[in-house]
Write a protein that binds this DNA or RNA. Structure first.
Lengths: 232, 232
DNA sequence: GGAATAGTGTCTTTTAGACACTATTAG
DNA sequence: CTAATAGTGTCTAAAAGACACTATTCC
């Protein structure tokens, strides 16, 4: 017994949403953008921003639209990639909802404005968020996003997506240190990132710190992979 | 204007399927399991095996079920991981269908039997499959799966999933050589894989080749990551 | 000058890669 | 013996990590 669009018996229509793990480094900590839900289910709880994929809209487009609605930031200005899809039957009490999670990494972003579904949006340190109970299975999604970000710092150049341009080698090192939660040797780090081909493009300018020698300024280069990798 | 399950206007119910990129090494080539479609759309074309996610069924469970239906192989016996989700609005002419692709890697599997939707199933070398026109966007999904497999050989132990146990170091090396399409130095490869912690567990037995010194036999160890990595 | 940060050099250890060499089998 | 494959040893180059040392700034 088939329906007009070819679904067999035992297969009902479902909903698909896109949820965003938006990470940045603020105040020396890795932080995620979370919203406080304005309606049931989980009303008042913290959750990842997101929403339904609209008719005729692709997944990447839906992620970029939600990102803009929650942060007023154009997706072209930061790193956006698909993370994973979550579809446990009981993950949403309203019905069968599949969520395609996206990971967004960007520099310290302007404080977000309330979006369509967002009663309130705020930055929250990920270690605190992971200890609290997020709505739905968003705790697991956030954990998966953080782990993906940590892993990608090793063998890609995405760390630079966290830095507002232009940035110094020390800025970049602070990103690694905060995301990995570990101190790195400044000398060796400097050698590695400046020798990696097409990772950093010098602007020629320098920035004066409060104290110490001026640091050379860089922009993101065209490389996406990092060879040799910087291992944790 | 909301419906009973919370979908706003402009968001219609959709379908979600699971499609499988099932890879093995046969006859010295990397091969994928493809089906010849028995009904429209794309009737007669080659496609990835897959089907609808059923009511109350999780994604991993749907992937394992489809795998068994197409190959009669229990998912517990091979490597199965989520690959990526595809949701372009026009990827299926029947309507809005999101496909969660899974990647399955296993030893030379028994020839598959025709499944529910499969008029005919067959192993096909991936280089040939990628040159032909697969149904839907399955060419891109297959390419993504192959690239994921190639990348994972570097820093994980999944290559052993391709080998029927017990296996020799040369068996494992052949997997790398076929998947990467490159010759590897037998001496250096031997040192790397036998020194990697918990990658290979010796059985104590040996296997006699047609000609040459007997080779030690191994089973898969508990390690999932490979340190140090074996780079392409 | 002292304190602090940027950046370079140097030394040791680890790993990759090339390849010589030994070990064990069949014929 | 030879042929072929398994496995070890050795050498060189590259890279990691520790850390000494120099450079440039503010105070």
């Amino acid at each position: 017994m088939n329906m007009s669009d070819g679904r067999p018996a035992g297969v009902s229509p479902v909903s698909v949403t896109v949820d965003l793990v938006i990470l940045t480094v603020r105040a020396g900590r890795l932080q995620a953008l979370l919203i406080q839900r304005g309606k049931i289910p989980f009303k008042g709880d913290l959750a990842l921003p997101g929403g339904y994929v609209r008719d005729g809209e692709g997944l990447d487009a839906a992620a970029a639209r939600e990102l803009f609605e929650e942060t007023t930031i154009d997706a072209a200005h930061l790193h956006l990639e698909q993370l994973r899809t979550y579809g446990d039957p009981d993950r949403d009490p309203r019905g069968r909802v599949f969520t395609v999670a996206y990971l967004a990494l960007g520099p310290n972003l302007p404080l977000p404005v309330a979006g369509t579904d967002a009663a309130e949006a705020r930055w929250c340190p990920v270690d605190e968020a992971l200890e609290s109970d997020l709505a739905f299975d968003h705790g697991r999604i956030l954990a998966d996003g953080v782990e993906r970000a940590r892993a990608k710092l090793e063998y890609t150049t995405v760390a630079a997506a966290f830095c507002p341009e232009p940035f110094t080698v020390a800025d970049l090192r602070h990103i690694y240190e905060v995301v990995w939660g570990a101190k790195l040797d400044p000398s060796n780090f400097h050698r590695k990132v400046t020798r990696a081909q097409d990772f950093l493009v010098p602007t020629g300018d320098h920035r004066l710190p409060d104290l110490g020698r001026p640091a050379a300024l860089y922009r993101r280069g065209p490389a996406t992979t990092l060879t040799p990798a910087i291992l944790r």
